[in-house]
């Protein structure tokens, strides 16, 4: 992927597919590292599926048809000296607390680090595609702090205006961009 924000979009699409109704995306940066986590309350993975997903890229590719999303994320993280950790609880075993958390850590100083890129576009794409799912977003760096919680927006908008109305999507993009421009003192 050209930008890490595209990996974020792709991994969050797994949460959408898993029928989550709340997806949290947290990005934390220091001078040296970038860590993002995507947590959902979707149906989760059984231990068997999780084990299969955890096997490295090159083996999974030849043994069976599995997806590309997680292997690509692992590759991107590992080539910077970072890693990916996935924890998941399947709804069969955890009917009241199922869901999945994917944490990816990258080292920014490594030559193979891919920049985050257009994360605002990733968020508006997710909201546009899944207007009834709630997204909680935070991105904290040494000099910025950006947050969005679609539950707050929904409270203001009420039932009749879906979040994927063009005007709302535009407002969300501007709202995020403004926060990025507003540096911490």
């Amino acid at each position: 992927m050209k930008e890490l924000s595209l990996n974020v979009l792709d991994i969050a699409q797994n949460s959408v597919k898993a029928e989550a109704d709340l997806i949290r995306i947290c990005i934390e940066e220091t001078e040296e590292s970038l860590t993002f986590s995507i947590t959902d309350n979707g149906y989760g993975m059984t231990p068997e599926v999780l084990a299969r997903v955890e096997t490295p890229f090159y083996t999974t590719r030849t043994t069976r048809k599995v997806g590309l999303g997680i292997p690509l994320l692992k590759l991107a993280a590992e080539q910077t000296g970072g890693d990916v950790t996935i924890t998941s609880r399947h709804r069969d075993a955890f009917p009241d607390s199922h869901g999945t958390k994917v944490v990816a850590r990258f080292y920014k100083t490594h030559i193979d680090f891919t920049p985050l890129g257009d994360i605002v576009s990733t968020l508006t794409t997710l909201i546009q595609g899944s207007p009834s799912i709630d997204f909680e977003f935070s991105h904290v760096t040494p000099d910025t702090e950006v947050r969005l919680d679609t539950r707050e927006l929904r409270q203001v908008l009420g039932e009749e205006i879906p979040l994927n109305e063009a005007e709302i999507i535009r407002w969300i993009a501007d709202y995020l961009k403004e926060q990025y421009e507003n540096k911490k003192i």
Partner: peptide, 23 residues
């Protein structure tokens, strides 16, 4: 199409071009 292969090939800006253009 917004699966992994689509996203990797550049589907995000294409989607946004349609959303913005329609508006």
């Amino acid at each position: 199409g917004m699966a992994t292969c689509g996203i990797a090939a550049g589907a995000r800006p294409v989607l946004n071009a349609f959303v913005e253009g329609v508006d």
